[in-house]
Design a protein around this nucleic acid. Structure first.
Lengths: 160, 160
DNA sequence: CTTATTGCAAACGTTTTGCACGTTT
DNA sequence: AAACGTGCAAAACGTTTGCAATAAG
């Protein structure tokens, strides 16, 4: 199981704007705006950080028990939101993925291997080198993923 | 399922040297040198590229059917070889890992999203920036993973 | 003869799917 | 009414584990 503790900055756009964006996306693909989809989006908005589908499912079960949202719907909606560019995910191998509201600019991640904390950074120099490398290999670059793993200052302080 | 096609450079050391290295590792940990372990190592040596445990298992089943090697043994041996620094793995999220003989220096990967081809590169500038970023966050860096995804020259040529 | 290793099958955790039923448009 | 979305349970996927049998030292 993936560790829970995560840290991110707050979303930059209002929930109304985000919701409008989502509704328009749904309309333009002839998809339907359901309570479940709304609750998944609003939960992602109101809780800052990176979440596994399971964590999100638990939050929703607590906060909206009457909706009886199934975990399959959480998975389906996260995929939808990801392909729409509204959320992004980081992969943790066999241990699954964590999702975050993806309205921010591209960034990479530095992850504490002790407490699971995730911090974000953006480094222009690295971005440029990557583009250059792809070009040198003749690739059309589509995406990249950079993760730095290490021990965060807080966990260094904790003895043992 | 992970795509199969992979490209790497050939191993740099002789099989005898590699085998001796492996045997010594086993001896020093009071582990045993078994036919299965030998066959897994030699299969990795003789087939250039990156392999999933499943792919390796199939190769071994074909080439040494009399050994009746189980896939659990392939997984166990790959873990052993990885923690000994003899092989390294790249993770493909939920879709598992690919392993390669890890006698080469550290490198990152550029991966074709059409054909699954994996190429390797090493970029000093990126390495340095990563170390710097970890330091700026106060992290003790343990590891990092950089993957660039895109379309390789060959797949660009293939129309459609 | 002791200890590690094996194959097998079952269990695991995450994710996907088929399907009958519900909801949105 | 038509089409899409839902929850549920079952299946799928890559991987790990318990265990009795086997092989290495």
């Amino acid at each position: 199981m993936i560790q829970e503790n995560t840290v991110t900055t707050a979303p930059l756009i209002s929930y109304e704007t985000l919701l409008a964006q989502f509704k328009q996306l749904l309309r333009s693909s002839n998809l339907k705006f359901t309570k479940q989809r709304e609750v998944i989006l609003s939960t992602l908005y109101s809780h800052t950080g990176h979440f596994t589908p399971e964590e999100l499912y638990q939050l929703i079960k607590q906060d909206f028990p009457e909706l009886n949202t199934g975990i399959a719907t959480v998975y389906r909606t996260l995929s939808l939101l990801e392909s729409a560019g509204i959320v992004t995910s980081i992969s943790f191998g066999t241990q699954g993925k964590k999702y975050e509201l993806g309205v921010k600019a591209h960034h990479d991640h530095i992850i504490c291997t002790k407490c699971g904390k995730i911090l974000e950074f953006f480094d222009e120099a690295i971005e440029k080198r990557q583009a250059r490398i792809a070009k040198d290999f003749g690739f059309i670059m589509e995406d990249h993923s950079l993760k730095i793993f290490g021990i965060c200052p807080e966990c260094q302080k904790k003895k043992s």
